[in-house]
Amino acid sequence: MILQSLWRERRDNPIFLWRLSSIKENVRLSCEAGLCPRLDFAVEGTLPDRNEASPILLACGDEIYFYRFARQLALTMKEHSPSTRFHLHLFEPSALCIADAQMLEARIGKQLSISYETGQRNPYGRPHTVFFAAGRFAIARYLLERNHVPVMVIDIDGRVRRDLTDAFDALKHHDVGVVWRQSQYRPWRTILACAVFLNMTEPARLFAARLAEALRLSLMKQPAYHVDQTTLHYLLHYYSFHHLKLKAANLGLTWCDHQFREGSLIWSAKGKRKADFLRFDTAEADRIVSGTSVRLGGA
């Protein structure tokens, strides 16, 4: 039964040693390669204002997730944390999706910026969740280098529940922040990639560059399994083993709470509970953004 279970979950579970060793090797290469390459793909759309010093909350996804979740995230951000900047990045959106994103951007105001990219760097040649999950960290690195402000990467299927200002301020003395699960011991389970904090410090910028490069190397092999959480695990292990300078915080689940606890900063959909997030109250959305012309139901 155990072997059957492992084989059945093989697409999302890097249990086989060659998968783990490949990710670990890519982390080593990214750390020992000196300066990591700059981004070599085009980002279109609107980007956050370079003249503002406030942190950026970043979420990335494809067109399907834009219609299902991203607009809810933007609307609840406007309601509960109006001073926090939110950047949304879309992978390979259609012309209609770009138009709807621009409409949402206009209604929310300057708090929201939306960019997008074509399939230029997608090694799969088609929409793929593994690329979306891993490719977002190149966007995080891009914003970190471009805007010189802290960036918090979260899952796109979230909903802001509290003002984030004080929570960002509490992280100002750390370089990075991740969601550690101390009860887990498997490399692909120890860290949840639903929230990753990157400060504007030099150690954080180097960490972000190495993370993006290690993920790029893994994506080149078109893996059928997710590599973002395992890469974060091995990169942090590399830093610890080699005693590299890095102040890392444990974010806990408050930035991506899939248990929907009342005191959390952000609720995050997970597994079967994603359906709960699709029951978004259109009347509530209209109250937040009066007169919006953006469709608020499912795609």
Score class of each variant (00 low, 15 high):
Leu6Thr: 04
Leu6Phe: 13
Asn13Pro: 00
Ile15Glu: 04
Phe16Arg: 15
Trp18Ala: 04
Trp18Gly: 03
Ser21Ala: 13
Ser21Val: 14
Ser21Gln: 14
Ile23Ala: 15
Ile23Asp: 07
Arg28Gln: 09
Arg28Asp: 04
Cys31Leu: 10
Glu32Gly: 02
Glu32Trp: 04
Ala33Thr: 15
Leu35Arg: 11
Pro37Leu: 04
Leu39Ile: 10
Val43His: 01
Val43Pro: 02
Glu44Pro: 00
Glu44Trp: 02
Ala53Thr: 13
Ala53Glu: 09
Ser54Lys: 12
Pro55Gly: 09
Leu57Tyr: 05
Leu58Val: 07
Ala59Glu: 00
Ile64Asn: 14
Arg68Val: 01
Arg68Met: 08
Arg71Ser: 11
Gln72Trp: 05
Leu75Arg: 10
Thr76Arg: 05
Thr76Met: 11
Lys78Arg: 15
Pro82Lys: 12
Ser83Val: 13
Thr84Gly: 09
Thr84Val: 14
Phe86Pro: 00
Glu92Gly: 01
Ser94Gly: 13
Ser94Trp: 13
Ala95Ile: 12
Leu96Ala: 14
Cys97Leu: 08
Asp100Glu: 15
Ala101Tyr: 06
Arg107Trp: 03
Arg107Asn: 07
Ile108Glu: 06
Lys110Asp: 15
Gln111Met: 14
Leu112Met: 12
Leu112His: 03
Glu117Lys: 02
Gly119Ile: 08
Arg126Leu: 15
Pro127His: 08
Phe131Met: 13
Phe132Lys: 03
Ala134Phe: 02
Phe137Glu: 00
Leu143Ser: 03
Leu144Lys: 03
Glu145Leu: 12
Glu145Asn: 10
Asn147Trp: 07
Val149Leu: 09
Pro150Glu: 06
Val153Leu: 14
Ile154Glu: 02
Ile156Tyr: 03
Val160Tyr: 07
Arg162Tyr: 06
Asp163Gln: 09
Leu164Trp: 09
Thr165Trp: 01
Lys172Gln: 15
Gln182Leu: 14
Trp188Glu: 02
Arg189Asp: 06
Arg189Cys: 07
Arg189Val: 01
Leu192Phe: 10
Val196Phe: 13
Pro203His: 11
Pro203Asn: 08
Ala208Met: 09
Ala212Met: 05
Ser218Asp: 15
Met220Asp: 09
Leu232Phe: 12
Leu236Trp: 01
His237Val: 08
Lys245Cys: 05
Leu251Glu: 01
His258Ala: 09
Phe260Gln: 05
Glu262Val: 02
Ser268Ile: 01
Lys270Thr: 06
Lys272Ile: 10
Ala275Cys: 11
Ala283Thr: 12
Thr292Lys: 14
Ser293Pro: 03
Ser293Ala: 10
Arg295Asn: 08
Gly298Phe: 03
Ala299Tyr: 09
Ala299Asn: 14
